[in-house]
């Protein structure tokens, strides 16, 4: 049980995909403009990581190693398409806001990275916990980044104005702001952990 907890927690802390492994930065930069987007993207990616980790680890003895990568990709793409269809059907506005970045989860390096580095070498339960940890860590990072960006760049939290009269710095909502916020957060986290 303790080991499972460790697999889960490492994705949030010491192996956080965004801040420590620097994986999956492309969707992070693109969609972290509002908390809703960040959270939605995080949940979608979590579902895909957990699903693909589960399937990959359960068939890891069956798939010959020479064709494992194409098989993983097919499995991941299947989960991504499920997410995309469900999102289009039930959360159309979120699907519109995330746009091309939902299908692009398929090439998110976190997903294939976990499938290859963890799920293909470990059991089903541990892989599920690893995927959950990675997904929650990714969601946490996205929500953190998008909270900062939405607050400073749009003057709102969850679409509600924080203080009247505050004039938001548009830079944070645009691409340079994403790089800036991620860079400063990473630097800050390194600064704290290296003590």
């Amino acid at each position: 049980m303790k080991r499972l907890l460790r697999e889960f927690l490492k994705g949030i802390t010491i192996e956080n995909p965004t801040f420590r492994l620097a994986l999956g930065l492309c969707p992070t930069l693109a969609i972290s403009t509002s908390i809703v987007n960040g959270f939605g993207m995080g949940l979608a990616a979590t579902f895909v990581i957990v699903g693909s980790n589960m399937i990959v680890s359960s068939i890891r003895g069956v798939i010959p190693s020479k064709i494992r990568i194409p098989s993983f990709i097919v499995i991941i793409a299947t989960f991504v398409t499920i997410v995309e269809l469900v999102m289009k059907a039930y959360f159309p506005s979120l699907s519109k806001a995330l746009g091309i970045f939902v299908p692009l989860i398929a090439v998110n390096c976190i997903v294939l990275g976990r499938a290859e580095a963890f799920a293909s070498k470990h059991g089903v339960v541990r892989s599920i916990f690893d995927g959950l940890g990675m997904g929650v860590g990714f969601t946490f990072a996205l929500v953190l980044i998008s909270t900062i960006r939405e607050a400073f760049g749009n003057g709102t939290l969850l679409g509600l104005i924080i203080v009247k009269g505050f004039e938001p710095a548009l830079l944070f909502i645009l691409a340079p702001g994403a790089l800036l916020v991620i860079g400063i957060l990473m630097g800050f986290i390194n600064h704290v952990t290296e003590r």
Binding site: P64, S71, T78, A89
Partner: peptide, 29 residues
């Protein structure tokens, strides 16, 4: 032939799952 068969199987399962999801969500979309 073994590789081809395994890949075929993986794709077949994936495709059938997706077909199911597609038909389930289509009217709503």
């Amino acid at each position: 032939t073994r590789f081809a068969f395994v890949l075929f199987l993986v794709n077949l399962i994936a495709a059938s799952v997706l077909t199911g999801v597609y038909y389930l969500t289509r009217p709503r979309i």
